[in-house]
């Protein structure tokens, strides 16, 4: 593999993980640039993981200030309010993350209007992770990444109280898989978020499909329809959410029992993320990003869903039934 050798310092620091994924993968990691747009608890966990793993750079964008919700599951925010003055969430988190691994360049950027970021901006990165954004913004960034000639891996991470999901779009992805000492070249085609979240007909999805997948779509739609900020649904919205569910089920010819009311109730019952779920989503997301950068291991395709209620961490490949 081309590129610089790892330094002695890097070898010592990353010793244990190099033993897991090899020196080549580590070298690729140290050259990778990551963009994070929107920092929820799960993404804060992800940032920690990826900084520890030793990526080249991490750029944070989140103009919001500190809120009670943000504080609850984000250990990167110091509890000292006097530090918040004039600082965005991204800046505060960036300060904490820098400390985790001096070999990673961590920085914060102001977004202003998201449409202000052109394709050129995204092309500086190898990986883009979004959270806490509206459906429109998610689709927009996903779309901009897909239009680039260079492959930019796109991920979104959403946590709703004790459940959450990760969406992965690696566009067209080639990797090597080791099976019984034999290296096999593999290629995967990923659909965009828009194709999946909106275009796939629910009735065509298998019956054993994770119910959480549908529930997440319902709430996402509700937020968009009502013009809510991301995560801005509460228990008082439950009747309206259930109504929307019924409408969607009818339109998509899906049995209403496929999206239990109790599940939706749970998802909207608290606007605070459940920290153990953040740790799990952030861990899985970190691992997936490391896989995508290093080209080692089977990447997740294309949804990961976790529900603390049943403890299952499920992968759903929704694109396979597409087309």
């Amino acid at each position: 593999m081309e590129g610089e050798e790892l330094t002695e310092q890097e070898t010592a620091l990353y010793d244990r993980q190099i033993r897991v994924w090899g020196a080549d993968a580590q070298r690729r990691l140290t050259r990778a640039a990551i963009l994070v747009y929107g920092i929820n608890g799960a993404v804060a966990e992800f940032c920690k993981n990826i900084v520890l793993a030793g990526v080249g750079s991490l750029t944070l964008v989140d103009d919001r200030g500190v809120t009670e919700e943000a504080l609850s599951a984000n250990f990167l925010i110091p509890p000292d309010e006097t530090l918040y003055e004039g600082k965005s969430l991204a800046e505060l988190c960036s300060d904490s993350l820098k400390d985790f691994n001096p070999m990673v360049r961590v920085s914060a950027e102001r977004a202003g209007d998201i449409s202000g970021f052109s394709g050129d901006f995204y092309s500086k990165f190898d990986v883009v992770v979004v959270s806490c954004c509206t459906l429109t913004t998610k689709k927009l960034i996903n779309d901009k990444c897909r239009r680039l000639s260079k492959r930019v891996a796109f991920y979104s991470a959403d946590c709703r109280y004790s459940s959450g999901e990760i969406f992965v779009d690696l566009h067209s992805y080639k990797y090597t898989k080791n099976k019984l000492d034999e290296a096999i070249e593999c290629e995967l085609q990923y659909p965009s978020f828009e194709q999946e979240a909106t275009a796939v007909s629910w009735s065509k999805l298998p019956r054993k499909m994770s119910k959480l997948y549908f529930a997440m779509r319902v709430i996402e739609k509700f937020e968009e329809k009502e013009g809510r900020s991301p995560g801005g649904v509460s228990i008082t919205d439950l009747p309206a959410v259930l109504k929307l569910k019924n409408e969607l089920c009818e339109a998509q010819s899906l049995k209403e029992s496929q999206i239990p009311d109790a599940l939706l109730e749970r998802l909207v019952s608290s606007q605070i993320e459940f920290p153990p779920v953040c740790a799990i989503l952030g861990g899985v997301l970190g691992q997936e990003v490391i896989k995508a950068i290093s080209g080692k291991g089977d990447p997740l395709k294309n949804f990961f869903l976790f529900d603390a209620f049943d403890g299952k961490g499920v992968i759903e490949d929704i694109s396979s039934r597409d087309a």
């Binding site: 244990r16 920290p275 603390a308």
Partner: peptide, 21 residues
């Protein structure tokens, strides 16, 4: 030397807390 990565530990810690509760 045993292989170890941060992400697995993070996931496992999350699961421990869920069971502890």
């Amino acid at each position: 030397i045993v292989h170890a990565v941060a992400t697995t530990n993070a996931v496992i810690a999350g699961l421990i807390v869920i069971e502890a509760i």
